[in-house]
Design a protein around this nucleic acid. Structure first.
Lengths: 208, 208
DNA sequence: GTCGTAAAATGACAGACTGTCACAAATTAT
DNA sequence: ATAATTTGTGACAGTCTGTCATTTTACGAC
């Protein structure tokens, strides 16, 4: 967490610094992030930076947390549009990512750049910032009647796997942007897997 | 990939170097791996190291690939024991990881250390080293009659999600080692989700 | 307006790290 | 024995990070 000093900073200076941070974060991989470059770009003296942030990790954590919050609210919108159907999330969110709707969301663009640079960046720990994996904001809009069990923990599990499916799709597309339609097909298969199960019908009876 | 020179190295020297590498890899996080420390531990001059490996990434890649191969063969053994039931994999593999059987597998110990240090290290890209996510070795021993569809691509998807469930379990246990039994329960729920689907029965009819 | 105290700014610095390169040593071929 | 090739080596240039003693600014009390 940044220092209180950071939040007391004059707006212009803080913006200058944050711009430089986001540029750095969306230009090089996590491992290569350089505070040297950031302070050079932002024209902020070295000592000042360390008055605002504890260290590099502190900075990165702060930026990603910001992004996570945005991301969750985006998923919430999508979920509302899907009438609370958790299983519809991967396909719809994927289309958002790919820019299916023509316009490009600035924050999402940053997110995708970061994912591209840090291939397979771990959505698990990205979302895991919150205590529960399934944030309150999303739990509120889930239609639990569509789920086999209606408790939050079960929804949490479904959401977990749902996120994994979304992550697979994003990563695959980044690795080969030409295969959008193929990835879309895979996502449908995976989603059906989550919905209806992957076991052959003959074996389904074991379950009671 | 290491240089041919590396493979021509006298065994004693190569072992000394590799030992130091594994020690480093299982002691600090990826980001903090220091070639300085490695060469100091192994008593290998700086210049020599760079005659064997292109750079730090080259080294890490080589070590992890080694581990991946071991890991795949372990999963194969488990899958055989499970009579090819892909859905049984997470629970069984998890018990192996936790050391349910009392003995500890040296390579697995290293693997767990690495996972602990790099919380949520991406199994996706770890396994993704191979062209197909589902390696031939595993495909050979899968009982496809248990799957809704029998083609390899479908098995690949199931395996993908299966790995995700395993990864969840491992990460959760590392975060809080006390909760083994709880994680085991979660793993069962997740596996059932993959087997039979998470949709409420009423909605299942949509599927044809 | 001046003095004093607390907050903020600053850049020089120590310590660490990486990858390179010119040259020495050893090994192999002729 | 000599030449050619491969391997070994450590000094070095260039970066980087986080700290800290010191200066500058902000601000309230008198």
């Amino acid at each position: 967490m940044p220092t209180t000093t950071f939040f007391r900073l004059p707006e212009e200076k803080r913006d200058r610094l944050m711009d430089a941070c986001w540029t750095e974060l969306t230009t090089v991989r996590f491992a290569d992030i350089s505070i040297n470059r950031i302070i050079a770009t932002a024209h902020i003296p070295r000592g000042s930076f360390y008055q605002y942030f504890e260290d590099k990790e502190d900075l990165i954590h702060f930026l990603l947390e910001d992004m996570r919050e945005y991301f969750v609210s985006l998923l919430r919108d999508i979920l509302v549009e899907a009438r609370g159907d958790l299983f519809a999330l991967p396909a719809m969110a994927y289309d958002h990512f790919i820019g299916h709707h023509g316009y490009t969301d600035p924050m999402l663009t940053l997110f995708i750049k970061i994912m591209t640079l840090n291939k397979g960046m771990d959505l698990q720990s990205f979302m895991g910032g919150s205590k529960h994996f399934l944030p309150d904001q999303l739990w509120e809009v889930i239609d639990t009647s569509r789920l086999r069990r209606q408790n939050r923990e079960y929804a949490n599990q479904v959401f977990h796997l749902t996120c994994a499916v979304l992550a697979f799709a994003v990563v695959e597309t980044l690795q080969d942007p030409a295969q959008v339609s193929q990835v879309r097909e895979l996502t449908k298969i995976r989603t059906d897997l989550l919905r209806y199960g992957g076991a052959a019908d003959g074996y389904e009876e074991e379950h009671t």
